[in-house]
Write a protein that binds this DNA or RNA. Structure first.
Lengths: 193, 193
DNA sequence: GCAAAGCGTTAACAAATATCAACGCTTTTT
DNA sequence: AAAAAGCGTTGATATTTGTTAACGCTTTGC
C-alpha cells in the first residue's frame, strides 16, 4: 500500500530509506479512498493534510462570484495534493480539492510532516528538492500565462503535460489554461502550424 | 554594508546568527553595484549567482518573438534576484535580469550557497521558509492570472504590492500584469467601484 | 540649453476571447 | 430501457484587450 510512496521518496534522496525510516513513514501516512467528486478539501476550511496520490486523479480549483470554477492544479499518481498556503499560514483555504476519479491517497497531517522531518533528515532534503521543482514549474506556468496567447499556452501545456491532456476532459483543461471550453475547442480545431 | 542581509536573515531564524556565522556570510556575499539598465543576468547565460538587493530596484523579464518584454518579477530592497530554474538545472536562462534603478547587491554563487548551508544549519531553515513564501506568492499570482480579468488583477496587485506600484512606472506594471500599457491606463481611468 | 528619450493618455480600429444558445453523441444513473 | 448528465462542437454576437498612431508633458543626456 505504501510502496509507491517509498519508491517515490527513494528517487529523491541520496541513500535509500532504512527499514526503520520506512516504518515511521508507513505509520505517519494514513491510506484513504475518495470516491469521484468527493472533497479532499473544501474552501473555507483550514487545510490540515497533504495527500500523496497512489491511484486516481484530483483537481484544485476556486469558484468565482459567478459560480465559475477555475482550476489551478491537476493531480494524478505520484502528485501531492494540498493547499500549502492554508496549511502553512493556518488561514481558511480559497480552494476546493476534490477527486476527479476514484482516488487512493496516503494522507499525512502538517504536524506529522514536521515530526517526520525531525526524525528523518533525508526528508528535509527531499522536501527542499520538491519545493525547488514546484517553484520552477509554477514559475514557468506563470510566465506562460502572462506572456502567451491561449493557443501558445495550450501548445506548451500539451508538450509539458501529455499525461494531463490524456487524462482529463477538455473543459477541465480549458479551465486549467484560463480559457473557456469553447475557445479551447476552437484552438484545437485549427490546422497544426 | 552587509547589515541589511544579516538583519534579514535574523528575522527568519529562531536564534540570531553568531558572530562566527556572520563572518562566514559576510565573506561569501560579495558587494556589487549595478548602474541603471545594466544586466545582472542575460538570456542565454546559465545563472550562476543570486543577488540580495540592499538598495535599488530590478526586474526579470523575457523578450518574445516580436521583441516585446514580458516582466515576470520585480525586485526592490530585501528581495532576492535570481533565475532559480537556470541556477538549479544549469540550463541557459530564458530571462534577463537588469537594474531598473542604480542598485546595490550582495552576490553569492550557487556553490557558495550550498557551502554556507552546510556550515550554518539555520540557513537551511531560512531557505525553506523563503521557498515556502515564494511558492505561496507565486501560486496566488498564478491563480489570479488564470481566474481574473485585467481589472481585478490590477486591484489585487495594488493591494498586495503597493511598494511596486509606487516604485515602477505604469508600463512596467502593465507588463508585470500581462496587459498592455494602454489597457492599464484605461483600467486606472475607470471610476472606482 | 536643447534634443532625445521616457512616460502616460486618448482615439479609431482590429483581433482575441467570452457569452449565449443550440445540437448530437456518449456515458451514467435510475 | 429511458432519462439525465456529461462532453465537445458550432454559430451568432458581445466584450475585452491589443494595435497603431498621435499628442503633450517630464526627465535625461549631451
Amino acid at each position: 500500500m505504501h510502496e509507491p510512496l517509498i519508491t517515490y521518496i527513494n528517487q529523491y534522496i541520496s541513500s535509500p530509506l532504512t527499514s526503520e525510516e520506512e516504518k515511521l513513514i508507513t505509520t505517519a501516512f494514513q491510506p484513504k479512498r475518495l470516491r469521484k467528486k468527493q472533497y479532499f478539501l473544501q474552501a473555507g476550511e483550514v487545510c490540515k493534510n497533504t495527500g500523496f496520490i497512489t491511484k486516481g486523479a484530483m483537481r484544485q480549483y476556486t469558484v468565482d462570484d459567478k459560480g465559475v470554477e477555475h482550476i489551478v492544479h491537476l493531480y494524478i499518481e505520484n502528485y501531492w495534493a494540498t493547499d500549502r498556503e492554508s496549511s502553512i499560514m493556518l488561514t481558511p483555504s480559497r480552494y476546493n480539492i476534490d477527486a476527479w476519479e476514484d482516488t487512493e491517497l496516503l494522507v499525512i497531517s502538517r504536524a506529522n510532516i514536521l515530526d517526520l522531518m525531525n526524525k528523518i533528515p533525508a526528508l528535509v532534503e527531499m522536501i527542499r528538492l520538491m519545493d525547488e521543482r514546484y517553484a520552477i514549474a509554477n514559475n514557468r506556468r506563470l510566465s506562460s500565462a502572462i506572456s502567451n496567447t491561449a493557443e501558445k499556452r495550450y501548445e506548451e501545456f500539451a508538450q509539458n503535460h501529455p499525461q494531463f491532456n490524456l487524462r482529463f476532459p477538455q473543459h477541465i483543461i480549458a479551465s486549467y489554461l484560463g480559457v473557456t471550453k469553447e475557445t479551447l475547442s476552437r484552438i484545437r480545431k485549427q490546422p497544426l502550424k
